[in-house]
Design a protein around this nucleic acid. Structure first.
Length: 423
RNA sequence: GGAGAAUUGGCAGAGUGGUCGAAUGCGGCAGUCUUGAAAACUGUUGAGGGUCACACCUCCGGGGGUUCGAAUCCCUCAUUCUCCGCCA
């Protein structure tokens, strides 16, 4: 959520910047400013009324104490009007505040200057590419065929138990999943991220805190009996650790890593590209989250990108990095880099990580602040990224490391797996 | 799941209808003293709105109510603790 005072002071610049997202926010911003003004005017009026009635109440109290009940009763009558108008004003204020809040929820984050203009993922800018794309022998298979051939992932069994998009990993497939989780967590903690285990469900307040609500409720599994959501990403619980928190400057940087399963309804995204592991309702992911001083957050973002690169180099997977264009940028993000691994047998790139800086957008909703040098409260910056999402990494490994004799396990994972080949 | 108790500032803990945003202690910060530090002493120390700055307003777990007036009374929800039941 954008800050009101920032909108007030940079109205035109914000409208201009949001045009990059192909959203004309001008009228929305205008109505926010009108509502803001109305809110403050109403607040001032209410404050005055309350001040008057507080004053009267105090006088009544003093009169009673000094035994002047009659005079007190006379004053009581005067309060009736004040009470009436303060009730009306409170109602009015609540209405305006709610409208203002809802309008603010509809405004996405302002894209960073470096974000390229563009309408869709086709306009994303490739900024880096590394790793050799293997030349596979004849008869190379896509990962879902390999999964079947070696009996390591059973998609049909998942359908029976839960439904499409909930695969069952078996034998060496299950072991490889566990190896990847442990490897990622080890890499992240070695880089200084503090491991944390968090709930896999979140309440409504947490959903609003990181911006999934009210925007994306259709993408989350919701449990009405308990008013809880299954998490679509560890970003929500891990970042909400810092909801309503005031940090000291010396607490920066805050870094966490967490493994969680992720649940996504993926409503309406069925089609040709969802086969196998490409798009699931439940998948595993290891996330990294940072809370940073505003002056350090872009440096931190670069550090996260380098960290993810390092992992992919060790796995020896061909990958590229995209700078998302404004049209493809997430609602809450100011700048996002996507990592994609090349799926050789499918001949396409698969997104395996998304690393973003949200600047103060989430912090404003979370009320995540810190005391600066002058002792004033300021909003912190939040960032997060996948390091990494498992299924497509697994797809990449299966396809790129396949040989006629079986699938070779990347060297760095062998100690975690306890085997070096799936055959 | 049943019965009872509780929820106050960074922490501990007073406060049961009136000048209480809240005593006191600890912690934090600043100063005095000291070669330096500790101790001691003095001052200061919640968040938000509002204002050029004051004034002023809101917040004592969340929401609602009673009252001229609520941290204090009532209702409701949440959470925590104790006892019982069930259970990985």
């Amino acid at each position: 959520m954008l800050q009101l005072n920032v909108i007030r002071e940079n109205k035109d610049a914000i409208i201009e910047a949001l045009k990059k997202r192909n959203s004309d926010a001008a009228s929305l911003i205008d109505s926010v400013l009108v509502l803001d003004e109305k809110r403050r005017a109403t607040q001032t009026q209410l404050d005055k009324t309350l001040a008057d009635s507080n004053k009267l109440s105090k006088e009544i109290g003093i009169l009673y104490k000094s035994g002047k009940a009659q005079e007190a009763n006379a004053l009581k009558e005067e309060t009736a009007n004040l009470k009436e108008s303060s009730k009306d004003l409170t109602e009015e204020l609540n209405t305006i505040a709610t409208e203002l809040q809802q309008a603010l929820y509809l405004i996405p984050n302002v894209p960073h200057d470096s974000v390229p203009t563009g309408k869709s993922e086709e306009d994303n800018e490739e900024i880096f590419k590394e790793g050799d794309i293997p030349v596979l022998a004849g008869g190379a298979l896509p990962h879902w065929e390999l999964a079947k051939k070696y009996d390591i992932i059973d998609f049909e069994l998942g359908v029976k138990i839960a439904g499409a998009g909930f695969p069952v990993y078996k034998g060496k497939g299950a072991r490889l999943q566990r190896a990847l989780i442990n490897y990622f967590l080890d890499k992240n903690t070695a880089a200084g991220y503090n491991e944390i285990q968090v709930p896999h469900v979140v309440n409504e307040a947490s959903g609003y805190g990181t911006g999934q609500l009210p925007d994306k409720e259709g993408q989350m599994y919701y449990m009405p009996a308990d008013d809880l959501y299954l998490i679509p990403t560890a970003e929500i619980p891990v970042t909400n650790v810092f909801r309503d928190v005031i940090l000291n400057e010396k607490d920066f940087p805050i870094t966490h890593t967490a493994y969680t399963p992720c649940f996504r309804r993926e409503a309406g995204s069925y089609g040709a590209h969802v086969r196998g592991l490409n798009r699931l309702h439940q998948f595993d992911k290891v996330e990294i989250v940072r809370v940073e001083h505003p002056s350090k957050s872009y440096e931190a973002l670069d550090g996260m990108v380098e960290h993810v690169k390092d992992i992919l180099r060790e796995l020896k997977l061909p990958y590229r990095i995209l700078r998302l264009c404004a049209g493809d940028l997430g609602f809450t993000s100011a700048l996002t880099f996507d990592f994609e691994v090349f799926s050789t047998a499918q001949d396409r790139w698969l997104e395996i990580s998304s690393v973003s800086n949200f600047e103060t957008y989430q912090a404003n909703r979370l009320k995540l602040r810190f005391k600066d040098e002058d002792g004033k409260s300021q909003l912190a910056h939040t960032l997060n990224g996948s390091a990494l999402a498992l299924p497509r990494v697994l797809a990449g490994i299966l396809e790129n490391y396949q040989t006629p004799d079986g699938i070779i396990i990347p060297e760095v994972l062998v100690p975690y797996c306890g085997f070096d080949k799936i055959d």
